[in-house]
Design a protein around this nucleic acid. Structure first.
Lengths: 186, 186
DNA sequence: GGCCCTTACGATATCCGTAACGATT
DNA sequence: AATCGTTACGGATATCGTAAGGGCC
């Protein structure tokens, strides 16, 4: 069980781009890190997934054959996550941070939502995105989610600062946001 | 993608035993480690999977609802591994270590196998299991597989020494062995 | 008291980024 | 010369085991 979902996902992304640098960007990794993960996966599978012709990367026959099953793994994972989202119990208090740009649209939807579901607690804290960034620039920066501090490690912090998309990167935040958006039907 | 297959597997095993200590033994972990992994999974899912009534552990409704999808994940992973095994190319040289107890049965099968598949290279090295253990007792102990040294970290080493079952624990070895056994139809 | 879950803490292993190298176009 | 894959190395992070705490039978 040493093979990880992350590695399988890496494999799929690289197989789609056949371009290490490009794939590594999509995965928010350095080419070096991605390269090592692929190597590691190949080692555990006992066969090479890719071969390199000059600068070009190609799938091996083995890699080709592993692709469908790999996609199934990720699809199954998606279902798993979706299940977790839908299983949200209605008494879980939810609080979300929204940056300024999305304040209006979210607040309106939350308002409607609260009328429909008065027993689901939602707090919406609005803060400038720059403010959230400055939290993260501080090495001890924390975000708060449902009242609890959300530890942010350096990697995640960098990813956020680079991409300015919180929901794409912090899975825990994503989960909560999606929960809300699921109800909001955003 | 922080949720790992290992965690999902942990969840399933614990849900079957509802007994932390017992589950942790099945998973070759200490209760402490398993406990933390479950906590971590719950945190990422945003809901508790288990609740504790006195000394007894019970599934929450959420945990119950996550079980089928979790099992699917593991089933899909099994298919994934099986696919990798079957995709073995016939020109991969294979060498396996066999302990004394299994020498005769394996050697006979290998012999038959070689007659049927003369172009698949298999070397069988026989050594006492105690010998293999003593390799591992040395902190720099290595096993050899297909000529390449197989780095053994301390955790794996301990697991092997405890359980005396190589094939259950070293996935890489398992993979190779299963490859062979697949052909051998053992 | 004994069993069991839980938490704190330290060691080990793993993961990732930086930087440098080598090869290809 | 520029781009890309690869490797070496160091720091940050995660994982695990040991040991100690606390509740229930």
């Amino acid at each position: 069980m040493h093979i990880t979902l992350k590695q399988i996902n890496n494999f799929i992304v690289l197989s789609e781009t056949l371009h290490l640098t490009e794939a590594s960007q999509k995965l928010y990794l350095t080419p070096s890190a991605l390269h090592k993960q692929i190597k590691n996966l190949e080692e555990q599978l006992g066969n090479k997934l890719f071969k390199t012709k000059g600068k070009r990367i190609e799938l091996t026959g083995f890699g080709e054959s592993m692709l469908p099953q790999s996609r199934n793994m990720i699809l199954e994972y998606d279902k798993f996550i979706r299940k977790a989202q839908i299983s949200l119990t209605h008494d879980t208090p939810i609080s979300i941070n929204v940056d300024f740009a999305h304040q209006v649209s979210v607040m309106n939807k939350v308002k409607n939502f609260k009328e429909m579901h008065p027993n689901i607690l939602i707090d919406v804290n609005v803060s400038l995105w720059e403010e959230q960034q400055s939290y993260l620039s501080n090495s001890k920066g924390t975000l708060y989610l449902s009242g609890e501090p959300l530890k942010v490690n350096k990697n995640v912090k960098n990813k956020i600062l680079k991409n300015q998309r919180l929901s794409l990167l912090l899975e825990k935040v994503t989960l909560y946001l999606i929960k809300v958006f699921y109800y909001l039907k955003i």
